[in-house]
């Protein structure tokens, strides 16, 4: 028996909107630790890793580890039917073939349940080792989204370079080139507007903007995004989910053959 009650149901709505276009089907894994997912996009270039820790739920019951295969587009459709202030409860029986999403309005005057069929998914799981990254950039998530969107009107790839001067986002396309440099800025009044650059070694990596733009659909989840880079390693773009966990995107770089 699985029963997870999330008072801030909008978090789950935002998570689904962030990943449904990147990944079609995925297994949600439930354990005593929490509700998690690891899935790659169909071309196996990008990976989504989600963790919602059990402590973040108002009620978390998971009698035994359970893996539930879901079509993310269909799950997103169902969660779209929840109000932004609704409490969302996810329920499933051990060995059952469906999952129920229950939506309660804050004053309990409307209660809805949506049942969705589960599916068997043969997913490939990657072992991602803990890595020391050469450069970690923390910046406003809306700024990161703006940069990725702007650069994708010029070119298809972005070169992210971190030096002691700052972080540079560059692209080139048929019509010309673009460079955007952000300097460390910790002097702002609000911490969510800060840009913080931790650099061990200068690093420069190239990524497909199509994926970066897809990751920025998670912008409503967090005011800040963390971009972790190491030469010849996938970049990690992380959105923290308030006191519950994270949504991380991994993207393989483009490298010289």
């Amino acid at each position: 028996m699985l029963e997870l009650r999330l008072v801030q149901g909008s978090l789950l709505k935002k998570v689904m909107e962030s990943i449904k276009d990147l990944v079609n089907d995925a297994n949600f894994d439930c354990s005593a630790t929490g509700f998690s997912l690891q899935a790659m996009d169909s071309s196996h270039v990008a990976l989504v890793s989600l963790l919602l820790r059990s402590e973040g739920f108002e009620h978390y019951r998971c009698d035994r580890n359970l893996s539930m295969g879901m079509n993310l587009g269909n799950m997103a459709k169902m969660l779209k039917c929840a109000g932004n202030d609704d409490i969302v409860t996810v329920k499933a029986d051990d060995g059952g073939d469906c999952v129920t999403f229950m939506f309660e309005s804050p004053n309990q005057d409307k209660i809805a349940d949506f049942e969705m069929k589960l599916m068997d998914i043969d997913s490939e799981h990657l072992g991602i080792p803990e890595a020391e990254y050469e450069a970690i950039v923390r910046m406003p998530s809306a700024e990161f989204a703006r940069i990725c969107k702007d650069l994708s009107t010029i070119g298809d790839t972005v070169v992210i370079s971190v030096t002691k001067e700052g972080v540079k986002f560059s692209t080139r396309g048929d019509i010309g080139t673009a460079n955007i440099v952000l300097r460390q800025n910790t002097s702002v009044d609000k911490p969510e507007e800060a840009t913080i650059i931790e650099m061990e070694t200068p690093v420069s990596l190239t990524f497909a903007l199509r994926y970066m733009n897809s990751f920025t659909k998670a912008t409503p989840l967090a005011s800040q995004v963390t971009v972790s880079l190491s030469s010849e390693l996938p970049v990690v773009v992380e959105y923290k989910i308030a006191e519950m966990g994270y949504l991380r995107f991994y993207l393989a770089p483009k490298i010289e053959e």
Partner: peptide, 14 residues
């Protein structure tokens, strides 16, 4: 020219 490698080129399957 630069080539897009899959994630499997960087991480092991479990």
């Amino acid at each position: 020219s630069q080539k897009q490698f899959p994630l499997k080129a960087f991480y092991a399957m479990t």
